[in-house]
Design a protein around this nucleic acid. Structure first.
Length: 389
DNA sequence: GACACGTGGGC
DNA sequence: TGCCCAAGTGT
């Protein structure tokens, strides 16, 4: 069989290949697999929580969140009776906050409609909020040892290389082919262990750049390796253009309280709180920066004197902020989907007449309340900056 | 089917 | 520094 086969002709594995592939992979995983916290349990609640947290998120980032979350909510009933705000507070900094809202919704469904018991099939798990086909298969195989296939970033790359599948992976036909391969691969015996092993291999050996083929236990079954095309498979993704935007952020202060608002459901960071914040379409992009770690903040009027003067002018003219703007200020750079945001943060002593053009609830909160509120990443950075004054 | 959704780490 | 990537899902 040659490469560049049409979708419909993609050859999967022969039965004999399948058998030795599975044996090689399991042998390797028993020796090389990591002992991650969620691999030490078969509790569907814990498996579910870990799988949601791990969506588009690295293992290293998840571990501390996973531990804290379980300390506070040891089972699905504890989570179900919690306030959404507290769930979001525990999720703060992890990103993709719809996951936190969905995990709360699902906890309530499982608690109220299923007496605290998770569904025991991938199909039923798939119906719950935040559980797609991958996560349903992961829970079914890890918690119940059901032979459900999985396809996610690690296994997608692995399968593509095993099959020397060199077309773009996002198309419907590609996904159909790879899911079909996953179905073929998953064994009836120890499917949970096997699925873990597939992901471990994809993550630790079959890496995106410079895969460790010399250390790979299944390289003899890999068509990309056979053809020495592991560097060009999978097909590279089309790159996404970033747009620079400037946001103005104002911590309005009165006595010992700060004005905050909650993002409404249609907005990014829905459900989280922040200081007042406006996107500036006509603001010059700040190019200069001080040498620093990404995401770190650096105060100053000194580095961007004209920009801060302009920011103050806009607050007065455009937003009718009749307040005394204090010298304390900082800029924060951060990225979100398709945007690179430069945030100009200012502090203003409240006077009167703030033009109220922001959606969502506004509230005055004390310093102590600010600590407990779920904030966006930059909101928390700014808040810490203020609280440490 | 394309796009939105957040953040942190590696090179 | 800039770019790529990460145990996807919902719309």
């Amino acid at each position: 069989m040659t490469s560049n086969t049409a979708e419909s002709e993609t050859q999967l594995f022969e039965p004999a290949t399948l058998k030795s592939f599975r044996a090689d992979l399991k042998r390797w995983y028993r020796k090389a697999g990591r002992e991650l916290p969620w691999r030490l349990t078969a509790d569907p609640y814990r498996i579910w929580l870990s799988e949601i947290m791990l969506q588009q998120t690295t293992v290293a980032a998840v571990i501390p969140y996973y531990e804290r979350f379980l300390d506070r909510f040891p089972d699905v009933m504890a989570l179900a009776v919690a306030e959404e705000a507290e769930v979001l507070r525990l999720w703060e900094g992890l990103g993709y906050y719809s996951r936190a809202r969905n995990i709360h919704k699902t906890a309530r469904i499982v608690a109220e409609e299923r007496n605290g018991e998770f569904p025991r099939s991938a199909a039923e798990l798939h119906e719950l909020p935040g559980i797609g086909r991958y996560t349903a298969g992961a829970i079914a195989s890890f918690a119940y040892d059901l032979p459900a296939p999985i396809l996610e970033a690690n296994t997608q790359r692995l399968y593509a290389r095993l099959l020397a599948y060199d077309r773009p992976l996002q198309s419907t036909v590609a996904q159909k082919t790879l899911w079909g391969f996953a179905e073929q691969l998953v064994p009836k015996r120890d499917p949970g262990l096997f699925n873990q092993a597939l992901m471990e291999l994809g993550g630790q050996i079959c890496k995106p750049a410079d895969p460790l083929c010399d250390a790979c236990p299944v390289s003899r079954h890999c068509r990309a390796f056979e053809q020495q095309r592991q560097q060009e498979i999978p097909h590279p993704k089309k790159k996404i253009e970033l747009t620079d935007v400037v946001h103005l952020c104002v911590a309005v202060k009165q006595d010992d309280r700060f004005l905050v608002r909650q993002y409404s459901p249609e907005e990014r960071w829905a459900g989280l709180w922040d200081f007042l914040r406006w996107e500036q379409n006509d603001f010059p992009i700040l190019k200069r920066s001080r040498s620093r770690k990404s995401g770190e903040l650096f105060t100053d009027h000194d580095l961007f004197p004209q920009e801060f003067a302009r920011a103050e002018q806009l607050l007065r003219e455009r937003y009718q902020l009749q307040a005394e703007i204090q010298d304390l200020a900082l800029t924060i750079k951060h990225g979100v989907t398709r945007y690179r945001i430069t945030l100009l943060c200012l502090v203003a002593e409240f006077d009167v007449n703030l033009n109220d053009d922001q959606p969502g609830d506004q509230q005055w909160v004390t310093r102590e309340q600010l600590k407990e509120l779920p904030l966006s990443k930059t909101g928390r950075q700014f808040a810490n900056h203020l609280l440490n004054q």
